[in-house]
């Protein structure tokens, strides 16, 4: 699968960048909606426009930014905010562990710049790209810079208008990402042990969601899926037995 990467280097960086940006289009509404909502909610929580934009520009992780403004107005130690954001964003450790191995075409500078822009949709799109034609920087930045730009513009618009989006649920906008992630998960079904991984992670995260609550059901649920892959994996020893 990954050998296809070497044969299709005919793409120009410009074409790769455009390809990456184009991949955003089906979900372009999502960063816009969440950005508008974050901007408005942040002003309501007592931050000013500059602080709100600064948060979106430097943290660039939607769910954890909502946690931040939720806790901002409360008389608690800042360490609790840090701990909450750490918990919500913990899954990114898994993302960089996996995606880092697919970034052979990135210089060190590009790689560590790229990680700043890594989000949930990024991991699905970039890993899929690595599985098919190979992952190159221009594609990665085309995809993520487009999302980043939408996120910042929408944050600013939401902060200035100060109006929360009324009932995003009416148009199903609150559920675009789960459907999109479903498509992505299905896109990985050719990978080894895909079904046990998905079952272990899906079931464990659902149980933990009810027992422990968010956000740890994400990282711990994913951990169960990864553990399933580690346990089932064929090591060189078992592979020899199979081949023989």
């Amino acid at each position: 699968m990954t050998t296809a990467a070497a044969t299709t280097s005919a793409f120009t960086p410009r074409q790769e960048f455009i390809d990456g940006a184009r991949e955003v289009l089906p979900i372009a509404i999502v960063p816009v909606i969440f950005g508008l909502a974050f901007g408005a909610a942040s002003i309501k929580a007592g931050l000013d426009v500059a602080q709100t934009l600064f948060a979106s520009a430097t943290i660039f992780a939607g769910a954890s930014q909502f946690v931040f403004i939720e806790l901002h107005g409360q008389a608690i130690s800042a360490w609790w905010v840090v701990l909450a954001v750490f918990a919500v964003n913990f899954r990114h450790i898994l993302y960089s562990a996996s995606l880092g191995r697919k970034m052979a075409a990135f210089s060190a500078l590009k790689k560590y710049t790229a990680f700043f822009f890594m989000t949930d949709p990024t991991i699905g799109t970039a890993e899929r790209r690595a599985d098919t034609v190979g992952l190159r920087p221009a594609f990665y930045f085309g995809y993520n810079l487009f999302i980043y730009a939408l996120w910042l513009v929408a944050t600013a618009a939401g902060a200035w208008s100060g109006r929360l989006i009324e009932e995003p649920a009416r148009f199903g906008l609150d559920f675009v990402l789960p459907v999109y992630f479903t498509v992505m998960v299905m896109g990985f079904r050719d990978r080894p042990n895909w079904l046990p991984v998905v079952l272990a992670a899906g079931i464990t995260s659902t149980i933990l969601f009810h027992l422990v609550g968010p956000p740890w059901h994400i990282s711990l649920g994913a951990g169960a899926g990864i553990a399933a892959a580690v346990i089932i994996a064929k090591t060189p020893a078992t592979r020899e037995v199979d081949d023989g």
């Binding site: 949930d120 991984v197 992670a201």
Partner: peptide
């Protein structure tokens, strides 16, 4: 297994 394992927990 990481991408499928994490993304399914968001679904």
């Amino acid at each position: 297994a990481v991408p499928a394992a994490v993304l399914i927990t968001l679904v």
